[in-house]
Nucleic acid binder design. Structure first.
Length: 455
DNA sequence: ATCGGAATAT
DNA sequence: CATATTCCGA
């Protein structure tokens, strides 16, 4: 079991500096946050992080292990601190990342030429040519200046979409608003409206997807419930609410106690909410090969164009992601029935933010044999944000026993800071023999994720 | 007035 | 259908 625990800085000064929050979204190489816990073995079967499959199974055994592990974690000296105030910082922050991008500029920009260029150019080339500034002024003029009642349509090329998704992920679904997305995209050929429009569609797609998945998950849960004879300790009809269980007095209920699966991933953290293993890699099949048995119900028809809308992890290596292409050799299938467990740790003294709602972690096995834990909160008010200098430790555990030293790490400064960060991701190499992976950040909101990576 | 987002138009 | 534009509430 891998446990990542946030440790409060001794001084605790970082506590209130919301602006120090950072989101690590592009850098999962591990070095940034924690060095990789490198075990010789590769784990061969980590699933994609698709929540659905994770919720599928939940052997009582796992629970038992989990709970014990949890206790251990609780005992950690690092934990004990309330995290109130976190939310405020997170939700209130409006620090603009990087800054000074003039939106009005984008507003004026004409997308026509760029779109054309993009369309004409191989996506690779496009990717490497972020500067859309070179649109021909002529075309630009023609596009709008003349009279252009209607602006030239923007061609949402894969690259543009990738940027878009990236931005959305980085911001977190809750903070992903056109203007900010536009900033993060670093493209000046789009207008806020372009983005808004795309975002609209994006959400729509996600909505449908999540609805589907929720349905499936629900079904699975029930199925499991029966299968285990209710042996499980906790079976929430709605897995997404699990995090609140065991939490201390819940103050003012969130505006939306439970936000319906309104958006696609998100990535959660929202995150990506639904982090899926790139489908294009797994073939045209909309469902991963390892996907747990589907409910007897309709085999859920694949979305119109999955590959397009699922670029969630389609980042290039320049962002710290390993290109999918490299993942070929790495088995990305999960165990027969991967387990995604998530629970609110009953840690005394720790007051998780009431509105915090975590989502089962999305874990992605990267080609480099790294296991990526992605804690993507999906609450009305995000979430997980660590601050520079925050300390935490990582520890692998198996069957309630530590199998590695607790490595204390410190969140490095200099990491891109985004007050609205919602994702905190850690990469560790984990031998597949480890049964479960637990990810805990007490400092943040006191929650823990557990996922079976090897049955 | 600005912004985000849903509705509606093209 | 995809995107742009409009409408409207915050």
């Amino acid at each position: 079991m891998l446990a990542v625990e946030a440790l409060r800085g001794s001084n605790g000064e970082e506590r209130n500096g919301s602006s120090d929050n950072f989101s690590i979204d592009g850098d999962f190489t591990g070095e940034t946050l924690l060095e990789d816990i490198n075990f010789s073995d590769l784990f061969a079967g980590i699933d994609d992080g698709d929540i659905l499959p994770g919720l599928e199974l939940d052997p009582a055994e796992t629970f038992a292990e989990f709970s014990v592990g949890w206790e251990e974690a609780s005992g950690s000296p690092a934990v004990a601190e309330a995290t109130d105030g976190m939310l405020g910082g997170v939700t209130q922050d409006t620090v603009v990342l990087g800054g000074e991008k003039d939106l009005s500029h984008g507003e004026e920009a004409t997308s026509e030429t760029t779109a054309e260029d993009a369309a004409a150019m191989p996506s690779e080339a496009r990717s490497s040519t972020p500067d859309k500034g070179q649109k021909s002024s002529a075309a630009a003029a023609a596009a709008k200046g003349s009279h252009g009642k209607r602006k030239a349509k923007v061609d949402w090329t894969p690259d543009l979409h990738r940027r878009f998704v990236q931005a959305v992920e980085q911001l977190g679904i809750d903070k992903a608003v056109p203007s900010r997305i536009l900033e993060l995209m670093g493209v000046d050929c789009l207008t806020r409206h372009n983005v808004a429009s795309h975002l609209q569609k994006y959400r729509s797609h996600r909505k449908h997807l999540l609805a589907r998945e929720a349905e499936a998950a629900s079904w699975s849960q029930r199925r499991q419930m029966y299968a285990t004879g209710m042996g499980v300790k906790r079976v929430d009809v709605n897995p997404w609410l699990a995090s609140t269980i065991g939490f201390l007095p819940s103050p003012p209920p969130p505006v939306q106690p439970f936000r319906p699966l309104h958006v696609w991933g998100h990535p959660t953290p929202e995150a990506p909410v639904v982090h899926m293993w790139p489908r294009h890699l797994s073939g045209r099949s909309p469902t991963p090969p390892w996907a747990p048995p589907q409910p007897p119900q309709p085999p859920l028809p694949p979305p119109p164009d999955p590959s397009y809308w699922h670029h969630l992890y389609q980042r290039g290596s320049e962002e710290g992601w390993v290109p999918h292409a490299m993942a070929k050799g790495a088995p990305c299938f999960p165990q027969p029935l991967p387990i995604v467990r998530f629970a609110a740790p009953p840690v005394p003294g720790v007051v998780p933010h009431p509105t915090y709602r975590a989502v089962p972690p999305a874990m992605t096995k990267h080609p480099s044999s790294q296991l990526q834990l992605d804690a993507s909160p999906v609450s009305s008010s995000p979430s997980i944000s660590l601050k520079h200098s925050s300390r935490f430790h990582v520890q692998l555990q198996k069957h309630n026993r530590n199998v590695s030293d607790a490595n204390e790490r410190t969140v490095p400064s200099g990491v891109t800071s985004d007050s609205t960060s919602i994702n905190y991701q850690v990469c560790c190499e984990i031998p597949m023999r480890f049964m479960m992976v637990s990810f805990s950040f007490y400092q943040i909101s006191c929650f823990s994720f557990t996922k079976c990576v090897d049955s």
